[in-house]
Design a protein around this nucleic acid. Structure first.
Lengths: 181, 181
DNA sequence: ACTAACATGTAATCTGTTACATGATTGA
DNA sequence: TCAATCATGTAACAGATTACATGTTAGT
């Protein structure tokens, strides 16, 4: 997930590790920064895989910065991941949000719609604690206030997201994808 | 996180591993079941730690079931984790929901309120991609429809949760905790 | 003088996954 | 008979964290 975020941010502009870390932290749940031990080894692996290059900058700055620039391999890797996300990126809230943050880079309404449709299919399948078999549950079905809260929050989130998905799919299809007889 | 869920479900009644697995799966994001390789080693560790006991049941069932019962050590461990959750359970959406699912077992409105207040403090602190410094963002501040969606969904979720937190805190304080002159 | 923020890195560990392995029972 | 579901388990790996390690610069 963090690898996708790194690819996504570097796709937009070269950054150094520390800056990247703050941006990934701001993107993922509130303020929690990703750990040093996550980021720097990841950068090394991505460098070894030819996805990014590093240029050490010295100056009157605090410490030498390693400016990281995405290579063509890295840019292609981001687009590949956006076009064909694995299921975790569709079903896991955090990963889905990370995907959404960079989906604009795909720059292809058809491919973007395909991704949104996978999410739509996931959200509309009856499952999880929101359903009792085929029957949708209501807040009153839960006996304690905390599970009622879970239910209330989950329902509101899903409803909001479904509404957004449908209007966005309509606008993505509209301008470029009209069906003609 | 899964350990908390196991403690929580077994606090309610003895269950065997396979049953537990389905319940944890239904609780956590939609349908994704937890892996065998997660559950069974976890059960062994908890057994070794004296948190649960195992009773093998043979009968005309498919395979011998191992009925798992929480010990006093296990029950105390659940209550300890509910009373003093570490930050991850406050800041991470999935963990927070897992905590909420079993918070009723704490059976102490003051301790329950303390937990809800920590979440309230977390949600009301200006941070994350929803803020630009001190200024709250609006959907129109994002240039692409996907980041607009992230923003719309995140905002709706937070607003719903804050409303629920405040009304629930009021009812928890009301019946038992009135301040008298 | 001290603290916060800047900046990068390694080693040990934790939590969870996938792939492998086994076998019984139920229903089409 | 064949597939799905029930039921438990191990080994190898992936992804991320914490704790450790080092050093500079800017503000109070």
């Amino acid at each position: 997930m963090i690898e996708l975020a790194v690819l996504g941010f570097l796709y937009e502009q070269p950054l150094h590790g520390y800056d990247l870390r703050k941006r990934v932290a701001a993107l993922t749940g509130h303020v929690r920064p990703i750990a040093d031990g996550t980021l720097y080894p990841l950068i090394k692996r991505m460098e070894a895989a030819g996805q990014l290059t590093r240029e050490v900058q010295r100056g009157q700055i605090a410490a030498p910065r390693h400016m990281l620039t995405l290579t063509e391999v890295g840019r292609a890797e981001l687009l590949r991941r956006l076009r064909q996300p694995d299921d975790l990126f569709i079903t896991d809230e955090n990963r889905w949000f990370t995907l959404l943050a960079f989906l604009r880079h795909l720059d292809d309404p058809v491919a973007q719609s395909a991704v949104l449709n996978r999410r739509l299919a996931f959200l509309t399948q009856p499952a999880s604690f929101l359903w009792d078999g085929d029957r949708p549950l209501r807040a009153a079905d839960f006996d304690d206030p905390f599970r009622q809260g879970m239910f209330t929050i989950a329902t509101a989130t899903t409803r909001t997201e479904l509404a957004w998905l449908r209007t966005t799919l309509a606008t993505l299809a509209g301008p470029t994808g009209e069906q003609r007889p």
